[in-house]
């Protein structure tokens, strides 16, 4: 059986990998801000959000490893898989850009992730719901943080507004994948749309222009950006396989 067949036969494994990879890749992206954010409080915030996400990734990937039963633990899944085996959505692997672009990505993602985790927390699979119930409390903070900055930047100066609009415009094409009927969560779309519209109205911004959605991350078809991210994240384990300290 190919890797794809194995995953298709185990919906829980499929879920755990997708959720784990989303959190891992965005956590790694946010960690790139450490020491570079516009001010100290933002440095703390972005690093803390990244830390929460990497913690969630550890839980989801440990569960994936347990179901898979191949002896690959969360670290092995994070550091020893190549681009084609990652199942994260394309949104999370997008480069940070400037602060506004990072906030745009976080705003779209955290609002979706909060709705999704709430659903997972209430779902019957006990191992997934335990992780979801824990994560949802953390994500509520992330969504609030990002939404507040959307209002601040959108309703701020001409410069901050223009940058946020550009950031949202870039990220918008990766939204449809989150609600894809096959691999996404289409039932969450209405709630998510309402949340996004509410905050954008508060920021006196319009919804980004509709774009043709780009999908593929869930089946391993990633943008070029993910390979670059992995080359940094996986460097140590690739150079010194099995290194510990």
């Amino acid at each position: 059986m190919t890797e794809e067949d194995v995953v298709a036969e185990n919906p829980i494994l499929h879920h755990a990998l997708r959720l784990g990879d989303d959190a891992l890749i965005l956590g790694q992206r946010l960690s790139e801000w450490c020491g570079h954010a516009p001010m100290l409080e933002l440095d703390l915030a972005l690093a803390n959000i990244g830390l929460d996400l990497i913690g969630q990734a550890t839980h989801f990937l440990n569960l994936a490893s347990e179901i898979e039963g191949k002896g690959r633990d969360a670290d092995a899944l994070a550091f020893h898989r190549d681009v084609l085996d990652f199942r994260n959505c394309l949104l999370v692997e997008q480069p940070n850009g400037d602060f506004a672009q990072t906030i745009a990505r976080q705003f779209l993602f955290s609002n979706w992730q909060e709705l999704l985790m709430r659903e997972i927390a209430a779902a019957p699979e006990p191992r997934l719901s335990a992780i979801g119930a824990k994560a949802v409390k953390e994500i509520a903070y992330h969504a609030r943080f990002a939404s507040e900055w959307v209002v601040r930047l959108g309703d701020g100066t001409d410069e901050s507004r223009a940058r946020l609009i550009a950031g949202l415009d870039w990220m918008w094409r990766f939204v449809d994948e989150l609600f894809d009927p096959k691999d996404g969560a289409p039932s969450l779309r209405a709630d998510w749309d309402a949340r996004i519209a509410r905050t954008l109205a508060e920021a006196s911004l319009e919804l980004p222009k509709p774009r043709r959605g780009i999908v593929g991350g869930r089946s391993g078809h990633h943008s070029e950006h993910l390979g670059h991210l992995l080359s940094e994240m996986q460097f140590l384990q690739r150079a010194y396989p099995g290194a510990t300290w």
């Binding site: 100290l40 409080e41 703390l44 915030a45 803390n48 959000i49 953390e138 903070y141």
Partner: peptide
């Protein structure tokens, strides 16, 4: 509140 995220995940400033 100065910063909702603080020196550790469990604290705010």
């Amino acid at each position: 509140e100065i910063s909702r995220f603080g020196s550790t995940p469990c604290k705010a400033l």
